[in-house]
């Protein structure tokens, strides 16, 4: 058991870098995914499904807020972390930044499923984090994430049942799967080892990736979907060996992003820049 990292001021450079990297992975994923989900507001297939997806968007954004808040312990403010940050410094997986095609409801549903399974595993690996504030916040997030996963699966099963839904899901899977693999890509190898060695998270990216595959592959196959590259995997073990060919050109985690990310960044920082703001408005009290 690694010693607990209590006081942010006492962290050495290596600890600080590991903590910061882990938190950016977490916060940026949630923030950017929420940003994309909100595109479905007033565009979902029915009023009821609109409300449900909006709920998930707000949950994810709320989680991002919690993780950014932990980063504030390291001396940052919200504007440093979001509104004035270099877009190339964002560490989210490319899965969450891709735009939606209008009406392609299969995409957010499948994307949510692929992401939420990974999120579930990641949160489990954070339950015993040596950084107490991380461990403390996991429970609250997990209870909201449960609904997200059930919601995605309910939809997947119904969509997969229809011809058009099945076809669209397969298209979305072919397109999204390589990007989903970037969830488990490193920011850089050294810092990723430090995250685990310091006990900030108790599973490696490879371990989580393997676990993820052993969840999503059988489930998606049970819906009659072909999982790309699954032929290359050992059915019993789900050895997680991601080859360069399986990945998209941009990896997200290392700061390389698709063009869609730059556009998205410009849009969500638009008002802040136009009004010449230098700080962000808080409505809620700082999280405990």
């Amino acid at each position: 058991m690694t010693a607990s990292l209590e006081n942010p001021d006492d962290l050495d450079a290596r600890e600080r870098d590991a903590l910061e990297t882990l938190l950016k992975r977490l916060a940026d994923d949630e923030f950017v995914l929420a940003e994309r989900y909100t595109e479905w507001q007033v565009r979902a297939p029915s009023l009821e499904s609109d409300l449900a997806l909006s709920n998930n968007a707000q949950d994810e954004l709320g989680h991002a807020r919690l993780w950014y808040d932990v980063l504030e312990d390291l001396g940052y403010e919200e504007q440093d972390l979001v509104y004035e940050r270099d877009p190339a410094d964002f560490r989210h997986a490319t899965l969450v930044e891709l735009p939606f095609e209008e009406g392609d409801w299969a995409d957010p549903i499948l994307r949510s499923y692929l992401y939420d399974v990974a999120e579930k595993l990641r949160l489990e690996a954070l339950e015993e984090s040596t950084y107490p504030k991380i461990a403390d916040r996991v429970g609250k997030i997990q209870s909201e994430e449960e609904y997200h996963l059930e919601h995605a699966q309910s939809w997947l099963e119904r969509l997969a049942d229809g011809d058009e839904g099945h076809e669209r899901l397969q298209d979305a899977l072919d397109r999204l799967f390589p990007h989903a693999l970037t969830i488990f890509e490193p920011v850089n190898r050294d810092v990723e080892s430090d995250i685990v060695d310091l006990g900030l998270r108790d599973a490696t990216l490879e371990e989580m990736g393997e676990e993820w595959l052993s969840n999503v592959v059988p489930y998606l196959e049970s819906l009659d979907l072909d999982v790309p590259e699954s032929g290359q995997m050992d059915d019993d073990e789900f050895e997680f060996e991601v080859t360069q060919e399986m990945l998209p050109e941009e990896r997200g985690r290392d700061g390389s992003h698709t063009d869609a990310w730059v556009d998205l960044y410009d849009e969500f920082t638009h008002t802040y820049r136009e009004l010449g703001r230098s700080e962000t408005t808080k409505i809620m009290e700082k999280p405990e």
């Binding site: 709320g62 989680h63 807020r65 609250k140 409505i283």
Partner: peptide, 12 residues
């Protein structure tokens, strides 16, 4: 089954 109204702060 579900955390009605969520578990994170939704004071907004």
């Amino acid at each position: 089954d579900v955390a009605f109204g969520g578990t994170t702060d939704k004071a907004y």
